[in-house]
């Protein structure tokens, strides 16, 4: 509750929070099927209608309602983004904590592997994994998750190393606390703030990567809707039916803006140095 109030007290946090909240609502509606029309049913008679009262954002080449497809697409893209970021955050945190706590050779091995993964551009690495595993929703989740794991590993390892050298960790050792207890209570608990910020920002990148994969035909498969897929379908009709491109494009742009604004706000709020002293 306190954190929500803080977000809405923060200038960009308010905008970002509202955007992300609205998107989440739309995503849920899209996922449970509460859309104005069926996003997959083709109304051949209403092909390529411009936006009007019945079809708020027009229809596509097969007479499908763009607004409904957008809602379903947001649901699909958010699902992939959430699961892939959850995967990346979990894997990255475990690897980062292991590297920092075990140190020496483990640290070297883990971090060099992460360096190799980071050396590939994100979309290229995701493409490689999807090509090998075959396209589909869950392969996109795993691919995007692997791509963003190194970032979480780095975000966790650095602060974990400095926490490890703090006196409260030494104190815990003098009581004979177990490694698991020290890593979870003393390291992980102090990493919640940077991880929260990183998760929010990673959601924006994951959305973009998912859109990119779908655009290239390697993510969500038709006839299911996804933001990248809708953009890809609109390419040939850009001049006759610009609404096919404008609405998905704006949807992607605004969602990423929203997550970035929220991430920036969280960074400010959770950073103790930025915290205003109580008057």
């Amino acid at each position: 509750m306190r954190i929500l109030r803080a977000i809405f007290g923060h200038g960009s946090g308010r905008i970002g929070g509202v955007i992300v909240g609205v998107y989440l609502l739309i995503a849920i509606l899209g996922l449970v099927g509460l859309t104005p029309h069926n996003p997959i049913t083709q109304f051949r008679i209403d092909r390529l209608h411009a936006p009007n009262g019945a079809y708020w954002m027009g229809t596509d080449l097969f007479g499908r309602d763009v607004a409904s497809r957008l809602m379903a697409g947001i649901g699909q893209s958010f699902t992939v983004a959430f699961f892939s970021v959850a995967f990346a955050a979990l894997a990255g945190t475990v690897l980062g904590l292991a590297a920092a706590w075990l140190g020496r050779r483990w640290d070297g091995v883990v971090m060099r592997i992460m360096d190799v993964l980071l050396a590939f551009p994100a979309i290229l690495l995701a493409l490689l994994i999807v090509t090998v595993a075959g396209p589909g929703t869950w392969t996109s989740v795993v691919a995007i998750g692997i791509v963003y794991t190194p970032i979480f590993t780095r975000v966790v390892r650095g602060p974990a190393l400095s926490l490890k050298a703090r006196e409260f960790v030494d104190a815990a050792r003098t009581f004979g606390s177990s490694s698991f207890y020290i890593v979870t209570r003393h390291l992980l608990l102090n990493l919640v703030a940077p991880l929260t910020v990183q998760v929010t920002l990673a959601l924006a990148w994951a959305l973009l990567t998912e859109a990119g994969l779908s655009f290239l035909g390697l993510g969500t498969q038709p006839p299911a809707a996804s933001l990248g897929l809708m953009l890809s379908d609109s390419r040939n009709l850009m001049e006759t039916a610009p609404w096919l491109m404008i609405f998905p494009g704006l949807t992607i742009m605004i969602s990423i803006l929203g997550f970035n604004l929220l991430g920036d706000a969280l960074r400010d709020i959770l950073d103790p140095r930025m915290r205003r002293a109580p008057a």
Binding site: F168, A171, F175, S177, Y181, R185, L189, V192
Partner: peptide, 29 residues
């Protein structure tokens, strides 16, 4: 044998309540 450290700001985990901090030696043993 127990120890008290030099820097009271660094030797208490800022994210734990005093109850958890005092309970830790007992949980550990």
């Amino acid at each position: 044998v127990q120890m008290v450290f030099q820097n009271p700001y660094a030797s208490l985990n800022p994210r734990l309540t005093i109850e958890s901090i005092l309970a830790e030696p007992v949980i550990a043993t």
